[in-house]
Design a protein around this nucleic acid. Structure first.
Lengths: 389, 389
DNA sequence: AGTTTTTTGTTCACTTCCCGACAGAAGGGA
DNA sequence: TCCCTTCTGTCGGGAAGTGAACAAAAAACT
């Protein structure tokens, strides 16, 4: 519930609209902002004055680039101010840890990746994450050390009410509140969400589904999960567990899944299973990256396996399309960029979804690749640092 | 896009908030409104003065009922004004036509039902609907004849862009724009949506899912469809075709469906199929209503068939729960009130959805019964007549 | 070159909207 | 009867937003 008087809320809402416009459209003149928000130039001037005083935006005397509009007084551009301090994004995968330092516009300043076993020991993973965050922030200089906010991505359903990972999915995380733990280590507020949601946020903010009101981001990696954007907003559901499409049952008598059911989509079409199926036929050790390369080179076996996996995933997505009628499906995760997988999904959607629904949906690869979750974690931190509600 | 200046929009938003509060909470004092909206009493007084002048609300001198608060000056209650004129709701099913006349608070004043074959001939159905609307409005008196708005429910996916029913589903409706046609006959603006969406709207506004942010309304009748409320708002999707769960494929080699696919949920678990399965074992002619009675009486055959159908539907709903993590599933349509069906759905959701997701969702029968769609059509008309955007 | 046109940003007077404080109104309880 | 509580109306003031007018800067036109 926003506080303050109604007029204050109005002012705050206009401020947010202005900042959001700058965030998505880049530097703009006051006149552009007036047109974009529907407010008058006068109001915009006042808001900009306030925001400059507050250090949230800066006037960039962009003399260099010629003004495209043609005649008329050239505009003074207003840009989001990196301002003081920084934010940190942490991407915890099953087998990796990525940490990024970004200014408060979301521009990544530094980034590092480690390979660790996150699943087994949550405490150790959080120790490593905290150490990496401290290291990267101090290496970037004095001002960068003032970290305002941390966004973190965890590779499992995250219950926002208890601030905990759902019990039983990750072995080494029982009764651990990752946000609180990392906040305690760093002395900075931490916001947490799961990988698919943050990937969806990133692709929606800066990637393939930018501008689409209804988008489904599917992460196909160690597991399969979806982040669902509806009406331009991330849909998290009643308990924050929306998007768990990896546990749709695709066969009555399939393998036992870590969730306890059998025949889950994840057991059939996620990366570990596909690698296991392919490995016997290849001399080299296969990784998701290598499989993607082989697919691009036209390797028949890989194409067949990925295409089949795509059809299986696409079958589940077709049902979801029938229910949600989205504009775009964005494929992310280590295998999301594979063409065969995408074609398999497209074919299954066309076959199993209603014709008009299938026609309405685009199926595209993620633009941010395996950095989507990290970018999403940064975006979460930026958003939360902007409204310290 | 709302027009006018920012202050005008603020005023309008506050007016809407006030009206919405009155709509959901019933008659309230100015002080209650101030507490409920967060605005000051002064502001509320001003808004109420305006709205009284505009005829949108009335001051009900409710002397009769004692003031519960105890001591203090008794409040003057403000209630939505039925105002001048009426709205009409039209519910077109596959085999029935219902028309309701309501005042502008949504209170139904008169209602009638006919049994007709809607599917075969859209023009004829619209003629009957128009005649019924005219008849019912004139019978209710002079003022009632001033109909401001019509809300209509059609039993098929409705494409809001073309204002047409999706081609090929209803035989007798090709190239017909139901809204325009009815508007032309009645000389009143008509808003159209499909049955499941309007049922969902009705149950969310006045029924079983009232107060739940995320709800799925499932209509189980001639077909199977869902209306999805997320974040308190009806989700219609990119082209208005969200909620088409009737065409999830539940068997590779099932019967051919009217949508062209085979093995659709509708062909296995919708009313016509269930009646056909049951009929041979019964002497009397079965209807959905009769089947519901037999189920309540504990008839073993009926219970078995409904329970199985519930499991099949519940399987599809479990997948949807995994994706959307809703708070409640509301079962409507002619078979929605059946206990066996509900138990079958509950069992399948518990089995196939993720445990936490299944725990979070309630499965309940609709409160409005077979009138949900009609009430939804009225609610649509009321909502649209209130904001003539 | 000089003028016109176009676009931008600022200043000022004004309206709209909202809120706090005060006072009046209406009933219950000591 | 007097006090207390709660509700409602009114008044003055503050905050937000807007349009009109004006100044500034650069391109376009003569």
């Amino acid at each position: 519930m926003p506080s303050g008087s109604s007029l204050e809320r109005l002012r705050a809402a206009n401020r947010r609209a202005l900042l959001a416009l700058l965030d998505t459209e880049g530097p703009l003149s006051r006149a552009d902002l007036a047109r974009g928000t529907g407010l008058s130039r006068t109001t915009i001037s006042g808001l900009v004055t306030d925001l400059v005083a507050a250090g949230q935006v800066v006037e960039t005397t962009d003399k260099g680039r010629p003004h495209k509009g043609g005649s008329g007084r050239p505009p003074m551009l207003i840009a989001l101010s990196p301002g003081s301090g920084t934010v940190v994004g942490v991407d915890l995968g099953h087998r990796h840890l990525r940490v990024a330092l970004a200014d408060r516009t979301g521009t990544v300043l530094a980034e590092e990746t480690e390979t660790i076993d996150v699943d087994e020991d949550g405490t150790a993973a959080l120790d490593r994450a905290a150490a990496a965050a401290r290291r990267i922030a101090h290496a970037a200089g004095k001002d960068a050390a003032r970290v305002h906010m941390v966004g973190m991505c965890v590779p499992a359903p995250f219950d926002r009410r208890s601030a905990r990972i759902r019990t039983g999915i990750l072995r080494g995380w029982r009764d651990l509140s990752p946000g609180e733990e990392l906040a305690r280590r760093l002395g900075v507020p931490v916001h947490v969400d799961n990988d698919a949601n943050l990937g969806a946020l990133a692709e929606h903010t800066r990637g393939a589904s930018h501008g689409s009101a209804h988008a489904i981001y599917v992460k196909i990696a160690s597991g399969i999960g979806a982040g669902i954007v509806l009406g331009g907003r991330l849909h998290r559901g009643a308990t924050g567990q929306a998007g768990e499409i990896g546990h749709v049952q695709v066969g009555e008598d399939g393998a036992i899944c870590r969730c306890g059911n059998r025949g889950c989509l994840e057991t059939v079409a996620a990366a570990p299973r596909l690698l296991a199926v392919l490995q016997p036929a290849y001399d080299e050790p296969l990784t998701a990256t290598r499989v993607r390369e082989l697919d691009a080179e036209g390797d028949a076996g890989v194409r067949r396996v990925l295409s089949d996996a795509g059809r299986t995933i696409g079958r589940a997505l077709a049902d979801l399309c029938n229910s949600l009628n989205p504009e775009v499906i964005v494929l992310g995760g280590s295998l999301g960029a594979s063409a065969s997988l995408r074609e398999g999904i497209r074919a299954a959607v066309d076959r199993y979804a209603q014709p008009d629904t299938a026609d309405a949906v685009r199926v595209v690869a993620a633009q941010l690749g395996d950095r989507a979750e990290l970018v999403g974690a940064v975006a979460l931190a930026v958003a939360r640092s902007r409204e310290p509600s």
